Measured scan of single mutants.
Amino acid sequence: GLTEEQKQEIREAFDLFDTDGSGTIDAKELKVAMRALGFEPKKEEIKKMISEIDKDGSGTIDFEEFLTMMTA
């Protein structure tokens, strides 16, 4: 499992990506986040990433899903 410290770091990354503070990361926010990390993702790639992570089919990534992605 994760230490509380690791969870906190992932939470901070999540909050950075969640620019509108909605508690979820949408495609637009993910794209901005990827760019910040030096990637140039295409729209299809973003969609694919979200569909792989987005277990509940909401079209957005919540913290639990993000946590799973970061620790996979």
Rank of each mutant, 00 (worst) to 15 (best):
D26T: 11
P41L: 15
M34P: 00
G38C: 10
D15M: 11
A27P: 06
G38L: 01
K47H: 10
E4D: 12
E29V: 07
Q8P: 02
I25Q: 00
D20F: 04
G23W: 02
E64I: 09
G23S: 05
G23K: 03
E52T: 10
S58V: 07
E4N: 10
E9V: 14
L30H: 00
A72E: 12
L67F: 06
F14A: 00
Q8C: 12
T3R: 05
L67A: 02
E52V: 12
T68I: 12
D26S: 12
F17C: 10
D18M: 05
E12C: 14
E44N: 08
K42E: 15
K28C: 13
K31T: 14
F14M: 01
E64L: 08
T60F: 08
Q8H: 12
E12G: 06
I50T: 03
T68D: 12
A13L: 15
L30P: 00
V32N: 15
D15V: 05
G23Y: 01
G59F: 06
D18N: 03
T71Y: 06
E52S: 13
M69D: 01
D62G: 07
T19M: 11
F14R: 00
F66A: 00
K55W: 11
L30I: 08
S51I: 05
K28S: 12
L67Y: 07
K42S: 15
I46K: 02
E9R: 15
R35W: 04
S22Y: 03
E12Y: 10
A27K: 07
F66T: 00
K28W: 11
K43N: 15
F17H: 04
I50L: 15
E29L: 13
L2G: 04
F63T: 00
A36Q: 12
I25K: 00
S58H: 06
E5S: 09
E4M: 08
K47R: 10
K28F: 10
Q8R: 13
A72W: 10
K7R: 11
E52L: 14
T24R: 11
M69G: 04
F63P: 01
L30G: 01
V32C: 15
I46N: 02
E9P: 05
S58N: 13
T19P: 05
L37Y: 02
G59Q: 06
D62K: 09
M34Q: 01
F39I: 10
D62N: 14
F17G: 12
A27E: 11
I10F: 12
S51L: 05
G57H: 10
D62R: 11
I25Y: 00
V32A: 15
T3F: 03
Q8M: 11
E40C: 14
K7S: 05
I53T: 04
L67K: 02
D54P: 04
K48R: 12
T68W: 13
T19E: 07
Q6F: 13
A13N: 03
E45Q: 09
E45D: 13
E40V: 08
L2T: 05
I53V: 11
I53Q: 04
D26F: 05
L30N: 00
A72F: 09
D26M: 06
G23P: 00
F63V: 02
R35A: 13
I46L: 12
T24L: 06
T24W: 09
L2W: 12
K42C: 14
E29Q: 13
F39N: 02
E29K: 10
G1N: 08
V32Q: 15
D56H: 10
A27Y: 13
K28H: 12
D62Y: 07
K55C: 07
Q6H: 10
K55H: 08
A36K: 13
Q6L: 13
E64A: 10
G57P: 05
P41I: 14
E4A: 09
T19K: 10
K55D: 05
Q8S: 07
F17T: 03
E29I: 10
A33T: 03
F14T: 00
F17R: 02
M34W: 03
I53L: 13
E45W: 14
G57Q: 10
D15F: 08
A36P: 00
I53K: 03
S51D: 13
D15A: 09
E5Q: 13
G38H: 02
G21Y: 04
F39G: 03
A13C: 15
A72N: 08
I53F: 15
T3I: 04
E40L: 06
E4G: 06
F39Q: 04
R11D: 01
A72C: 14
T60R: 10
E9W: 14
G59E: 05
T71D: 05
S51T: 10
F17Q: 03
E52R: 12
E9N: 12
E12D: 13
I46R: 01
K48S: 07
T3D: 05
G23N: 03
G23V: 01
K47W: 04
A13I: 15
G21D: 06
D26Q: 08
R35G: 07
T24C: 09
E45K: 06
A27I: 14
T24E: 08
K55Q: 11
T60S: 08
S51E: 14
I61S: 00
G59N: 05
T71S: 09
E40G: 06
V32I: 09
I61R: 00
G59W: 05
K47G: 05
G57I: 07
A72P: 09
G1K: 12
Q8F: 07
G38A: 01
D54C: 13
K42Y: 07
T60W: 05
I61M: 04
E5W: 10
M69L: 12
R11C: 05
E45M: 13
L16I: 09
L30D: 00
G23E: 02
E9Q: 12
I61P: 00
M49V: 07
G1V: 12
I53P: 02
I53R: 04
T19S: 11
M70P: 01
G23I: 01
A36M: 13
E29C: 14
G1Q: 10
D15W: 07
M69W: 15
T24F: 13
K31V: 15
I53W: 15
T71F: 07
I50R: 01
I25G: 00
D20S: 03
R35D: 09
A36W: 13
Q8D: 05
D26L: 09
D26R: 06
E52N: 11
L37S: 03
K55E: 05
I25F: 01
K47I: 14
G21A: 06
